[in-house]
Design a protein around this nucleic acid. Structure first.
Length: 870
RNA sequence: GCGGGCAUGGCGGAAUCGGUAGACGCAAGGGACUUAAAAUCCCUCGGCCUUAGUGCUGUCCGGGUUCAAGUCCCGGUGCCCGCACCA
């Protein structure tokens, strides 16, 4: 019997059109809908121009969840949009003399077409781009609300300035001292900026991490580290003589137990005391200026010498009468952590040790290992002693209460002691800073305020929103075109009506993505959200995206939910109930730095004498095969999803992306793997075609037996397992089971089938098609039709397995002797421990090993194993 | 430096709470069908063996707990990730 091969190029668009016509994936988010809501969301893409395999993997996963949950009876919200503001559009505008708007919307159109060809079950009626005035109008509304609720403020701050993109970057966007996008060395500049008060939420954002039990532990840890809570002691050190209006200054330390070993003080060059002193001391002024020039890159910081400037000032040591400590201005003290001032204890800190060694300062130990009998200060003279957490130490020079404590206990004891003696107080510090959102760019959401010479900073009136970006801009010079726009900038003050100037900074694009998930619920309302609908649909039940957003985007979104709750837009604090971070798509690389890199499509791969070689298609030259790396434009190891979908169809691409690796790990794209997936597509098709005629007329009898019963049990077991695997997002395991099940079903031949077998095969093949439908929806529809169903499988409820059929009738238990498997025992699943033990001891193999003796012990774990100990 | 993770055949990976290690897929080898190829189907596939046996050995290395360890504990090695002059 021959059957036509399944032709995805013909079938896929046909079914996509059908789903569209039926409006199958449009969601009723109204509050009167009684179906349980389920919100599944994949991180929306930046419209760079074309989708890549990472998108295919991400959206394939989300679509499995969406289709499965829909079949399980949920009202599923599965929307798509575009994170459309940002630098690349402006770069393209500069390079190609296009307009960011045209470039962006053209890209969106191209990528929408690509995504549609994947057959994703998305509600396209909710689509928006963050650069749509309809969207950013509501974002401006949120900004004004945040302003009202004191969640936004303006301050002059040292900012990270990207000299290539000519913009300010958030701390999170500076990687190794370089701009996250441009890669340029970041400079420090003083500018007046808008900030969101995320640091007000440090403790809350940290504490709530515990409740995120459907988030990866790794992401939770990264967020906790980022927030960076530490407990320490803040205390004032008094100057021996008041100077420039200061009688002393506050320091912060997480190691108060080293106070006795303090041998110098150091303050940041930006510290008010340093600044005041510099006004009177040109040498110090010069020092401060020099220090500020030093870059912030990792290498520079590592190699940068510790530099200090001795101010000549002294403070009194709080523990020892008459003892004084010199005050330095030092390059390694950060103004924005703690109080910008420290005491240095060289004996127990590498940095302080370096500094003290350079400037000839004393090194005084406050503790030594408990077995150290040496002269304590000699012990720490060449390197600092930093004990392990669990290590017990011998205290020297400590306040009495500390002397018996260890580790964290000692720190707490010192804080208590300092509080009792009114020297200072215990204080919690966070690493998290406020979020600077001002960007000196055109292609972003305008900050809706006006600067008036008489009224100051005036919020734009709500009825004037959106403050819309002007279209008539040019990009022939770097910088922000809004700054030099002739008319857009000049406006009347919303308050007094006098001539004023618009804020020309736009918002960081991370603002756009911090609330889009809420907007999808009511994408076209005249308010940012409709609170009762937002409360019903949020948090997002399952959010899926890359680990690269573990800190930035997710933390900002968590802040935004809280801020939006305060402003009355919803009552949800945590935006994402379940989070899943998928691995990357990786591919072999071809070439090297010297000869350049080649795309897979430019090469012929073959095997010669067991070794794989890559040959250029144009001239036959051999190109070295490099390491397996993330698909990237720079290494040119990308595979175009369009090519794959043209060759094999969307279903094959989706199936392969889900099959090989666990979804949180990297998956390697290989042609062989894609072909394997495609073989399976054809195998399913053949299975259905072969059985088509036999199955159409049959119906399930009350009971079946023998071979038919075996098939039936396999069907129900598979159905159960696949459902459980999908719930756990273990797509690779679900797929392995479906391969196994296909092998089982393919082993039955239609021409030998009696009516009973035919009826269980109908059930089995139908189950199988329903199980693959979330992953390969087009093929599933085609097969479903072939099986004689007139409905759409995409609109068919998930079948229920029969628990009685999903268990085995006869259990085969392994029987071990002294922990080594020696036999199999067939037992009734309900057999008692005693019955199993008795049966085991009757086995020939067991009797042979026992040689007539009694076993020392027999361990029977029902449904698992028997172990006979001799 | 600090914090975290991972390690299983030629490869990707399975293995629920400690209970048959290697499911499933890829690659490879052999065979069938065919004039031939493609497609398809069948078989083999961790290592070792004078005994081919429900034989021995085997989940990075060394110890331990247990009737039983890929899984738990202690020590080490290698790789990966995050943060980092944060006091």
């Amino acid at each position: 019997m021959t059957t036509e091969r399944y032709n995805p190029r013909e079938a896929e668009p046909r079914w996509q059109k059908k789903w569209d016509e039926e409006r199958l994936f449009e969601t009723d988010t109204g509050v009167s809908n009684t179906k349980p809501p389920y919100y599944v969301l994949e991180m929306f893409p930046y419209p760079s121009g074309r989708i890549h395999m990472g998108h295919v993997r991400n959206y394939a996963m989300g679509d499995v969840v969406a289709r499965y949950k829909r079949a399980k009876g949920y009202e599923v919200l599965h929307p798509m949009g575009w994170d459309a503001f940002g630098m690349p559009a402006e770069n393209a505008a500069m390079q190609n003399k296009t307009h960011p708007k045209g470039w962006t919307y053209d890209n969106i159109a191209a990528m929408r077409k690509q995504l549609k060809s994947m057959g994703l079950s998305l509600d396209w009626s909710r689509e928006f781009a963050t650069c749509d005035p309809e969207y950013y109008a509501q974002q401006q509304k949120l900004f004004l609300d945040f302003l009202k609720h004191d969640l936004v403020y303006r301050k002059s701050a040292k900012v990270n300035w990207d000299p290539v993109d000519m913009t300010v970057l958030a701390n999170e966007q500076v990687i190794d001292g370089k701009g996250w996008r441009s890669g340029a060395e970041v400079e420090q500049r003083e500018l007046t900026q808008w900030f969101f008060k995320i640091s007000d939420f440090s403790e809350e954002l940290l504490e709530a991490i515990d409740g995120l039990d459907e988030w990866p532990a790794k992401v939770k840890l990264m967020q906790a580290n980022w927030i960076g809570k530490s407990r320490g002691l803040q205390m004032k050190f008094d100057l021996t003589e008041p100077a420039v209006g200061f009688d002393g200054f506050e320091i912060y330390t997480t190691r108060p137990d080293t106070l006795a070993g303090a041998s110098f003080m150091a303050i940041a060059p930006e510290h008010p005391l340093a600044v005041a002193l510099a006004k009177e001391n040109p040498e110090l002024a010069e020092f401060n200026k020099e220090v500020r020039k030093t870059g912030t890159s990792a290498e520079e910081l590592e190699t940068a010498e510790k530099q200090g400037f001795d101010t000549g000032l002294k403070v009194r040591h709080p523990l020892y009468d008459g003892k004084t400590l010199p005050v330095f201005v030092a390059n390694f003290i950060l103004m924005d952590y703690g109080t910008g001032a420290i005491f240095g204890c060289p004996a127990h800190d590498q940095r302080d040790h370096d500094f003290a060694s350079k400037y000839g300062l004393p090194i005084i130990a406050t503790f030594v290992p408990s077995d150290c009998d040496d002269e304590p200060d000699a012990f720490v003279s060449s390197e600092p002693y930093v004990p392990l957490k669990s290590e017990t130490v011998k205290w020297i020079n400590q306040p009495a209460s500390v002397a018996t404590a260890t580790g964290q206990e000692a720190i707490e004891a010192t804080i208590d002691w300092a509080e009792q003696n009114t020297l200072g107080e215990g204080k919690v510090q966070y690493r998290l800073r406020d979020w600077g959102i001002s960007r000196q760019r055109y292609w972003g959401c305008p900050i809706p305020v006006v600067h008036c010479p008489s009224c100051g900073v005036v919020p734009e009136k709500e009825e004037n929103l959106p403050v819309q970006l002007p279209d008539d801009v040019t990009f022939d010079v770097p910088g922000n075109p809004l700054d030099r726009h002739p008319t857009w900038r000049d406006v009347a003050c919303p308050e007094c009506g006098e001539p004023a100037k618009r804020e020309t900074d736009t918002m960081d694009t991370f603002v756009d993505s911090s609330w889009y998930f809420a907007r999808f619920i009511t994408p076209h309302e005249k308010t940012p959200t409709v609170p009762e609908q937002a409360n019903r649909w949020l948090p997002v039940d399952q959010y899926i995206g890359g680990i690269e957003h573990a800190i930035l985007h997710l933390l900002y979104s968590r802040f935004f939910s809280r801020a939006m709750s305060i402003a009355g837009h919803m009552e949800i604090k945590e935006p994402f109930k379940g989070l899943f971070t998928q691995g990357m798509v990786v591919h072999e690389t071809y070439g090297n730095k010297d000869i350049g890199w080649f795309q897979p499509a430019e090469l012929l791969l073959e095997e010669v004498d067991g070794k794989r070689i890559a040959k250029r298609l144009d001239n036959g030259e051999i190109v070295p095969i490099g390491s397996i790396e993330k698909m990237s434009k720079s290494k040119r190891n990308t595979v175009d999803p369009d090519d794959i979908m043209q060759t094999y169809g969307a279903d094959t691409a989706r199936w392969f992306m889900l099959s090989d690796s666990p979804p949180d790990r990297d998956v390697e794209w290989t042609d062989a793997g894609a072909e394997g997936a495609h073989r399976f597509v054809q195998r399913i098709w053949r299975l259905v075609q072969n059985w088509q005629d036999v199955l159409s007329e049959t119906s399930m009898p009350e009971t079946v037996s023998g071979k038919a019963q075996d098939i039936r049990k396999a069907s129900h077991k598979t159905l159960k397992a696949v459902g459980e695997d999908i719930e756990k997002l273990a797509f690779n395991r679900a797929i392995a089971r479906l391969y196994e099940y296909c092998n089982t079903l393919s082993g039955v031949k239609p021409d030998q089938a009696d009516p009973e077998v035919a009826s269980v095969m109908k059930e089995g093949v139908s189950f199988h098609i329903q199980c693959i439908a979330p992953m390969m929806p087009h093929l599933a529809e085609e097969c479903w039709r072939s099986l004689g169903y007139e409905t759409l499988v995409s609109a068919t409820p998930w079948p229920e397995y029969d628990p009685a059929l999903a268990v085995d009738d006869i259990l085969i238990m392994p029987v071990q002797i002294n922990g080594k498997k020696r036999a199999d025992l067939e037992v009734n699943p309900d057999a008692s421990k005693e019955e199993i033990e008795a049966a085991s001891l009757q086995l020939d193999v067991v009797m042979k090993y026992l040689e007539g003796r009694d076993p020392k012990k027999v361990i029977v774990v029902p449904k698992r194993i028997v172990n006979v100990v001799i």
